[in-house]
Simulated scan of single mutants.
Amino acid sequence: MVWRSGSNYHVIKQCKQRLACANNQLQNTKSSGVSTQCNNDQPNSMCTCCCHDDRCNVGDVTCTQDQTCPPQNQMPHGHITCTDRNQPGSHCTFECTDHEYDVYPAGKNRNHCLSNGSWSESPPCCARPCPPYFLADIVTLYHSSNIHAYEHMVRIAFLSAEQTAIAGDAVKYAGLYYSGEVNMESIVHFNEYNDDKLTMQGLFMQRVIMNNTADRKVNTGAAMEFARTHMFNQSNGVRGEVPRILMVITDENSTDDVLEPAEKLRAEGVLTYAIGLAEDGKILDRDQLMQIAGEDDHLFNPDHDISQVGVGLINEFTVHICADPCVHALHNHEHFAR
């Protein structure tokens, strides 16, 4: 055992049961103050090292060997400055440089490399407030047979958009109108508006309008399948490794099956939501809406307060997307330690 207090060293060599020595040796890497129990970077240290051969403890015993720490040379949306890269004793400072990004966790902007090869703190990340900076590709499918319900749908869409940031590294929206079939002229793709919110809203107002087929069918399932195969497509602006969300807003029960396309979407990692807007005493099939949504928290069936739907959606997105601020932003900028 080596015990150091300031500049004084105390070395104890003795025979000990193998298990007891091994248990003591495990304590070397346990936290003690700002470092570990066995260290080379603090005034006090106590180290245990075990050997099992004859005369193995002859000579000096230090128990510690300086080890390099794992590299931490990238900080997207910011940079790292280290005094000696990942060598023992190196002190690193983390700084976010891109607009509206801050170090997360707050205040954790420094760490240093310990002699045991570990960093004193896990490296932080650069993150933005979430909301409004959700990272998601959202497709919304609209159907209405009632002008008042349609106006509510437009209001929900605008309330949701106003509470989110539209950008290449935040939320992007796409959508369409459907009835018996998808209205191809109504489609708004992710890559049509250059991430400009006003342009996007203008496209939705111009294209996504009530235009129902003469057969009066409401094939929600077919519209969902179309979204899966055509809307969630990289050629139409979907980003890789970004959370995907499908929302169905309707005031009618579906004529066709919705469960199979909903399950296909969820199997591919798409979060599905259903918003049912019943007007004029109409009763919507809650079981069918649940098949679309997949779970209770993803189903919205408001009686009168439409504004609460927008709030509820934002709260839901917060739960699913904002849980770890370090992963809800695109990390496509690399800044290396210097």
Rank of each mutant, 00 (worst) to 15 (best):
H77F: 01
H77N: 11
H79D: 09
I80T: 10
I80S: 04
T81Q: 15
C82V: 03
T83H: 08
D84Y: 09
D84F: 08
Q87E: 11
Q87K: 13
G89C: 09
S90F: 06
S90K: 01
S90L: 03
H91N: 05
H91Q: 10
H91E: 10
C92P: 03
F94S: 05
E95D: 05
T97H: 10
Y101Q: 10
Y101L: 07
V103Q: 12
Y104F: 11
P105N: 09
G107W: 02
K108W: 06
N109T: 08
N109P: 06
N111S: 14
N111F: 12
N116M: 01
G117D: 08
S118L: 12
S122R: 07
S122L: 09
S122K: 14
P123F: 06
P123T: 02
P123L: 05
P123M: 12
P124F: 01
C126W: 01
C126R: 06
C126V: 09
A127Y: 00
R128S: 05
P129F: 02
P129N: 10
C130N: 06
P132C: 09
P132S: 13
L135A: 09
A136V: 13
D137I: 01
T140F: 00
L141D: 03
S144G: 15
S144M: 08
S144F: 07
S145Q: 11
S145M: 10
I147C: 00
H148E: 13
H148R: 13
H148F: 11
Y150L: 04
V154S: 04
V154H: 00
R155C: 03
R155V: 01
R155Q: 13
I156V: 14
I156A: 02
A157S: 03
A157I: 00
A157E: 04
L159F: 02
Q163H: 15
Q163K: 15
A165Q: 12
A165T: 14
I166R: 00
K172H: 04
Y173G: 07
Y173N: 05
Y173A: 00
G175H: 07
L176M: 15
Y177S: 07
Y177Q: 05
Y178V: 02
Y178G: 05
S179M: 06
E181H: 13
M184G: 06
E185A: 13
I187Y: 01
H189F: 12
N191T: 02
Y193G: 00
N194H: 08
N194Y: 08
N194P: 00
N194A: 10
D195S: 10
D195R: 04
D195N: 14
D195K: 03
K197T: 08
K197E: 08
L198M: 12
T199R: 15
T199Q: 15
M200Q: 01
Q201F: 10
Q201V: 03
L203R: 04
M205D: 13
M205T: 11
Q206A: 15
Q206F: 03
R207L: 01
V208I: 15
